[in-house]
Design a protein around this nucleic acid. Structure first.
Lengths: 190, 190
DNA sequence: GTCTATAGGGGGATAGAC
DNA sequence: GTCTATCCCCCTATAGAC
């Protein structure tokens, strides 16, 4: 069971201090083994980062595949906004790493991770395109709308703390409404 | 004139590789001097980071003080969205560092920088509050609206490249419209 | 599967010559 | 104001004992 503990320690430390600032010795100390023993669980430090980013994005894509209600664009965008916030708030460390450590990846790995990210960006793009074509949404540019939406939703991770003024459900409500307004869908006041 | 070149080199390298990953020797090499000579221009590495973050946020606040048209909330939010995108696209390295290297700051410096960031977050908060009170905007939560707006606008820096499909003016138009829609202001189709 | 020891390389920062 | 030399520390990764 040491392997998963190594990955968990690496994830927490990378998120807190950054990949470059964390040493293999720190990770080993967190797990309670010597630095040399780490190399039974990973070929090197880079592989730790690569594997956590890859599995994070794989999880994200398959979780949406499960959560996607399909159907009409407005309901689907509402579902997407709530899904994105929930999924990201559940994994703050993995999310932080996935967005901040792209530059720490070696080129081939970077390309692979970028491809997964683009797959996810295609999700709101498809919803917005559908909403535009069916006339229920007004969005000037589907790609920009998708990027704006993802940035807005992911931003929740930078300030949300459990036990704060609003709970997760309330945050979801507020953001889902803003997400719809952003693409021209007006909702009743809450 | 070596001081400014040191700061410029540090900014570029920190943005590209991260504070922790950049060595004083690399910065010196970029400037064309030896590592020892750097210490005539900065007391230490941390001061390079602190000064660039402080001056970036000072510039941001004073630039908005200049750009703020005042007056009615809808026009002011439109101006804010355009200002934010323009200011941030002009300084991608400084912006990246200001958002990513907060964790590399020593505690007192972190508190000081956070205070400046909160001052800036108060700008859209005030606009949204005004728009809410005058009835021209519908936003469920002023604080969340402000955070969502800033995250959405800053997100442009992650994908915009000069020479791409849309120029800066077009991006401003699209985002200003989404920003208004987000807070319940419907605009005519573009 | 973990340890200790070590190879081989950099790191930040300082001292003193010029 | 810059250089070279250096202090002392830490790094990743490997080797070989247990």
């Amino acid at each position: 069971m040491t392997g998963p503990r190594v990955r968990a320690a690496a994830e927490r430390l990378f998120a807190r201090h950054g990949y470059a600032a964390v040493s293999m010795r720190q990770i080993a100390a967190e797990v309670g083994i010597g630095a040399g023993a780490l190399y039974h669980y990973t070929p090197d430090k880079q592989a730790l980062l690569r594997d956590m980013m890859r599995s994070h994005l794989d999880d994200l894509l398959s979780a949406w595949a499960q959560a996607d209600p399909g159907g009409e664009a407005v309901a689907r965008l509402d579902a997407f906004a709530r899904f994105h916030i929930r999924f990201h708030l559940d994994r703050p460390d993995a999310v932080f790493i996935a967005y901040m450590e792209l530059r720490s990846l070696e080129p081939e790995t970077f390309a692979e991770i970028e491809a997964l990210r683009k797959q996810y960006e295609a999700v709101p793009e498809a919803i917005l395109l559908d909403g535009l074509q069916s006339g229920v949404m007004q969005v000037t540019d589907v790609k920009l709308g998708s990027m704006a939406l993802i940035a807005m939703l992911t931003g929740v991770n930078t300030w949300y703390r459990d036990g704060g003024r609003l709970d997760r459900a309330a945050v979801e409500d507020v953001y889902a409404r803003m997400a719809l307004g952003m693409v021209g869908v007006q909702t009743v006041a809450v």
